[in-house]
Write a protein that binds this DNA or RNA. Structure first.
Lengths: 145, 145
DNA sequence: ATAAACTCTGTAGTCGGCTACAGAGTCAAG
DNA sequence: CTTGACTCTGTAGCCGACTACAGAGTTTAT
């Protein structure tokens, strides 16, 4: 038989067997051609395609976005401008997240310093953890978006 | 009636009505006392408690972790050491995420530069978006953990 | 007294991205 | 020619953190 079976493809592309069917349903893989008895047969290019998906995932793209990228790729339209927009949006999202995390880090550090301080002087003020109080009093102006 | 109804509490604490019941089930709020006919009545301190939950969420804690924090708070055990550990873990997680995002940002920037370059010299090489190729060829050694 | 507005419960649905399972059909080896 | 390994389909479950809904009972306003 020419072409890969589903499990062979899974093996080759290092993805779960069921993921392949899932991706087909989701439109990330084209509907695979079938044998007479209904078995899917995949071409080598599908391995590439799955690799592309994995790498786009690693770049932080959602399956939805990856589907778009794949359409651009398939139609090899001159989609540079569209791709650039996607990249820009993703980059902006990443930077937003970074800013959130930095604020978070600052808050956690502040809390942690209080914690350590309290543990040192435990003898003088043995009443409860001040960090819990700090969380209770935090200015609710942070992160989460 | 003394105490707040569920919707009053939701209003005061700025959370969804159903979230309150959910949090009660999840052990983030203590089982509320009831009226004769079975209506919950909440005290003012519940407003505080919900505020605490919201802020802890903003600090990146999961409900699971917040439940732990609340137990510490409730038992006002000297839980500083435990709280400190939670903070440290959270801080480590935040830093991991930051590192991931930085790698991601670098990759996206690289891709974006290619994109812009390609758009400038569109006339010379009008064949397809190089970024898509780049994603296809990316070293799969990144992010995602 | 009645209608609107609220609250109760249990349960199901949402999001994203899979992962698993049951039951039926198919293919390859001995 | 049977056994075991594979594949097919549809469907359900998982994670976390909610959110929504139906149907029954309760409170409030007129």
């Amino acid at each position: 038989m020419d072409g890969l079976t589903r499990s062979q493809l899974a093996q080759r592309a290092q993805v779960n067997l069921e993921t392949i069917r899932f991706y087909e349903e989701e439109g990330l893989l084209p509907p695979a051609p079938r044998t007479a008895s209904g078995y899917r047969k995949f071409s080598e290019t599908t391995v590439e395609r799955l690799a592309f998906v994995k790498r786009a995932k690693a770049l932080g793209f959602s399956l939805e976005e990856i589907r778009e990228l794949l359409v651009f790729q398939d139609e090899h339209v001159d989609a540079c401008a569209e791709v650039r927009d996607l990249l820009r949006n993703k980059l902006a999202a990443v930077r937003d997240k970074q800013a959130d995390l930095e604020k978070l880090e600052a808050h956690l550090n502040k809390a942690l310093r209080k914690c350590n301080q309290a543990l040192k002087q435990q003898s003088q003020h043995p009443e409860g953890c001040p960090v819990l109080k700090q969380i209770a009093d935090l200015n609710p102006q942070n992160g989460k978006r």
